[in-house]
């Protein structure tokens, strides 16, 4: 899939972003969707990848490509550090710990000298959008291939789903749940870090709010939820829909903090009315999307 020559750079940029978010959403889906453990600090891995690339290129003079695996390895180490104590406990502890980790990484990036503090870092500019389109396209395809092979077609995927559905039963059936969960979390950190590195080089100027802001995790969560939790294609569908709407709003309203509101409203509505996401609607396996009955059920709950 070469770069489509007939499209303008405008659409190429949007396609690049959609692909990147599809990959990021899939990375969250590995731990949040397939395993059922919510990582509310997943944006931190994206930021770690971005800052690793930036620091190695600016301060150490590395070329671009070797920085990506370094970021991925660092993210895996961080994931293991967070996962080893908290994945033994209930999911609530994990959610708290990952959230705290995400905020801690942002604080670190704001405080340290090497990351440029709150002002951020300027990378050597390389303004070649078709290059980034192809790189991100390949990274996304690899992420989905990895997810397909490991989660849909292997024992590992069955183990994860067993943990999600009933952890005690999985343990009884001989799954080493703690190790499997840590593996899943470490695995989910890799794509996030790689996309972080690519994104840093793409936008060439990064600061704590742009690559470590709360919106990144928010968007990953909402995209997966909207598309369908724990499905292979859900993140792609969700990321495409949400990112296109996001860009449209950006044109209509300009850059504003309103996206946090949209993301929040979308998360709440999907949880309440469409817990299986768009893929659930397509597959019609579980609850159908019936607005009237859902609304009635909700109103019934207000009669406390």
């Amino acid at each position: 899939m070469a770069v489509p020559l007939f499209v303008s750079s405008f659409w190429l940029r949007i396609a690049t972003e959609v692909l990147m978010w599809a990959g990021l959403a899939q990375s969250w889906n590995i731990i949040g969707g397939y395993t059922g453990y919510l990582s509310f600090g997943h944006g931190a891995f994206f930021g770690i990848g971005a800052y690793t690339t930036a620091i190695l290129m600016v301060h150490a003079g590395w070329p671009f490509w070797p920085t990506l695996p370094v970021g991925a390895v660092l993210s895996v180490l961080c994931a293991a550090t967070i996962g080893i104590p908290t994945l033994r406990l209930r999911g609530a502890y994990f959610a708290i710990a990952t959230w705290a980790f995400g905020e801690a990484v942002r604080q670190v990036a704001t405080v340290l000298e090497i990351t440029g503090g709150a002002f951020g870092m300027q990378l050597p500019p390389f303004l070649n959008l078709p290059f980034f389109y192809e790189a991100i396209l390949i990274a996304t395809i690899l992420t989905y291939l990895l997810a397909y092979l490991l989660l849909e077609r292997s024992m590992f995927g069955y183990k994860l789903r067993a943990i999600r559905e009933n952890e005690i039963a999985a343990e009884t059936a001989g799954v080493d749940t703690v190790v499997t969960k840590i593996e899943a979390f470490a695995l989910s950190a890799i794509p996030a870090a790689i996309f972080g590195g690519l994104y840093a080089y793409l936008i060439t100027y990064i600061h704590p709010d742009s690559v470590l802001g709360p919106a990144i995790t928010d968007l990953m969560v909402v995209m997966v939820l909207f598309g369908g939790v724990g499905t292979l294609w859900g993140p792609l569908v969700g990321a495409t829909a949400i990112q296109l709407v996001n860009r449209l709003l950006w044109f209509l309203r300009g850059e504003s903090t309103l996206y946090l509101v949209y993301a929040g409203v979308a998360i709440c509505l999907v949880v309440l009315f469409m817990p299986d996401g768009l893929m659930g609607l397509v597959e019609r396996r579980r609850v159908l999307f019936r607005p009237r009955e859902n609304l009635k059920a909700l109103l019934r709950q207000f009669k406390l």
């Binding site: 999911g91 909402v222 946090l260 949880v271 309440l272």
Partner: peptide
């Protein structure tokens, strides 16, 4: 829905994002 407790977490997470935004 599978894993109700986690859905509660996601909901309050969305609520936080909504209020803050």
């Amino acid at each position: 829905r599978h894993n109700p407790a986690l859905m509660g977490l996601v909901f309050t997470f969305g609520l936080a994002s909504l209020i803050k935004g």
